[in-house]
Design a protein around this nucleic acid. Structure first.
Lengths: 238, 238
DNA sequence: CGTACCCTTGACCGTACTCAAACAGGGTGG
DNA sequence: CCACCCTGTTTGAGTACGGTCAAGGGTACG
């Protein structure tokens, strides 16, 4: 099940057989976590990072008054909190949106891996920089785009990212309630509902209890004025 | 003038004399750029990264309809586009907000530096992860905070970051017009103006043509419900 | 079969946007 | 030195997008 992770890496940069073996050697057996489980708590000391093998997860930040922002959504193949390798404690939570299969890779193993294989170090550095690029795109969305545009953009992004690891067939389980979508998009659950209905009325997508079906990807992209360059689908060699 | 950069690194992690010398050896002489100069264009191939020695810069993303989002502000000591070391092309611009002094460090030198000094590699990885943490905090602001809260939070952040490199004395030149502030905060220039007036009327700050004077830092922090944990001012050893 | 959570829709409200106009200040050229 | 301009700031009046409050309905699960 580490295949999704290798697929994500290889989609952007070549990975040699030796490098693949080195990676496989440090990934312990998978474990399962239930939907809505918090896997990493804010501020807790981390000695390992979470490789998401299957399912959907998210990072989220809480505010004192109960407001919360989901800052990123993760799909299979993502090293969900590899930034914890250097930060050691995170200022946000990591939570499972669906039932997930994951593997906890010890930081000490990562350190040895990248000292032995510096190019893999750059690849994982790249992957955190890619995450940051998505954060910047979400800033753009939250700051400048309207509710429909924001929602359409989010779904386009997830669809493409699932495609990279071979899991997009026009239909996927996002695992998010409309309230959670609202927390990602900086709007209320009520308005998410109305916005979803707009997209449904335009026959662009169907949404039912976390199950997303994309009916017209091009239409969705047009609504969002979606430009996938921020996903670095064709990066320069590293 | 590389002192601000070393101060930023050393504020969070120890840097040995050898490491310092290794860094100094790859930083070429400084050059000056004028206010509002675009230093890195979107999509252009990068062979070097920009070390900001003095002044203020920002990263910004443009939308087709002319809307734009400033995704990050940089202060002296920041390696403004070190993420370009792995991404090679950026999906955003980098622009000088004030007159700036900077140095362009070739990627090939960085690669050799971190292969020779793997711990410095982790320190620079940390610094991009810190940038990403600020992006997440801005997502939180843009998604969940009101206009006043957002503005207050931004100014608290800059003040603290200037303090880290020894440049905060309650007064600093942000170099941003109210329109640029608006592009950072996801609001209009008109509303930035009204919001600034609110904070001025409460005697929390003064703002005059890019010059910020913080009159009551604690008051500002209270308005923003500011929590500096996302700035990783006391990180665990690396 | 009850209960809890989520979704859905309606009516009303408020924060922030839009449009518009006046003003201030710094820089340039006549 | 002054006229002019350009950019940025300030304020007002009206508007709209999205929030708030509220109530009814669906669906899964114990």
């Amino acid at each position: 099940m580490i295949e999704a992770h290798l697929a994500k890496l290889r989609f952007r940069h070549p990975v040699s057989d030796e490098e693949e073996q080195a990676i496989r050697a440090i990934v312990p057996p998978a474990r399962h976590v239930a939907r809505n489980t918090t896997v990493v708590h804010e501020g807790e000391r981390l000695e390992a990072s979470t490789l998401l093998l299957d399912g959907m997860m998210c990072r989220l930040k809480d505010l004192a008054d109960g407001k919360r922002q989901i800052t990123q959504i993760h799909v299979a193949g993502d090293f969900v909190d590899i930034h914890g390798f250097t930060l050691k404690r995170l200022e946000h939570e990591v939570m499972a949106l669906t039932e997930c299969k994951l593997s906890l890779v010890p930081h000490e193993e990562i350190r040895q891996l990248i000292e032995r294989w510096p190019r893999l170090g750059r690849l994982y550095w790249f992957s955190t920089n890619l995450d940051a690029s998505m954060n910047r795109e979400w800033e753009l969305s939250l700051g400048q785009r309207s509710a429909v545009e924001r929602l359409a953009a989010l779904l386009c992004e997830i669809h493409i990212r699932l495609g990279v690891v071979g899991k997009a067939d026009g239909r996927f389980n996002l695992g998010m309630s409309q309230a959670q979508l609202a927390d990602s998009l900086g709007m209320t659950a009520v308005h998410v509902n109305r916005t979803l209905r707009m997209l449904r009325d335009q026959r662009l997508l169907a949404y039912r209890r976390g199950e997303v079906e994309i009916l017209d990807l091009e239409g969705l992209k047009a609504v969002a004025e979606f430009d996938d360059r921020y996903l670095y689908l064709n990066p320069d060699p590293l």
